[in-house]
């Protein structure tokens, strides 16, 4: 198996997803299957085919520097779990310098 529970644990930490050891053990092999499926592309696409990132061969889709109306702040805040002073309220930010 290419993907270990340790790899998945690290990814979960980076993505801020809390997983129990049982969930890790269950998910790691599942992700591995997906990765293997994707890796099979390598059997068809050889070195001479550059990896692609976009499904459509488009470039230079740009807009002119023009202002459009923004949305009302109330509308934008409506989906926020918490707010205050017309701002999005977020839990205490732990700064690394807090820990010294």
């Amino acid at each position: 198996m290419a993907l270990t529970p340790q790899d998945v644990s690290r990814l979960a930490e980076l993505a801020r997803i809390e997983l129990t050891p049982a969930e890790l053990a269950e998910i790691a092999p599942q992700l591995d299957v997906i990765l293997e499926a994707v890796a099979s592309v390598g059997q068809v696409a050889d070195q001479d085919i550059p990896p692609s990132s976009h499904a459509v061969p488009l470039t230079n889709v740009m807009r002119d520097d023009e202002r459009r109306d923004s949305w009302p702040a109330e509308a934008m805040l409506r989906g926020a779990p918490a707010q205050g002073q017309q701002r999005f309220r977020v839990p205490r930010i732990i700064d690394d310098s807090d820990a010294g």
């Binding site: 807009r63 520097d65 023009e66 202002r67 459009r68 109306d69 923004s70 949305w71 009302p72 702040a73 934008m76 805040l77 002073q85 017309q86 701002r87 999005f88």
Partner: peptide
């Protein structure tokens, strides 16, 4: 110093009321 933001038409002007220069 563009007039609009990088990916949307919201204003880049300084000093607006909080979250009035925002969109989805």
């Amino acid at each position: 110093g563009t007039r609009s933001k990088m990916w949307c038409g919201c204003s880049t002007e300084f000093g607006g009321e909080p979250n009035t220069h925002t969109c989805p």
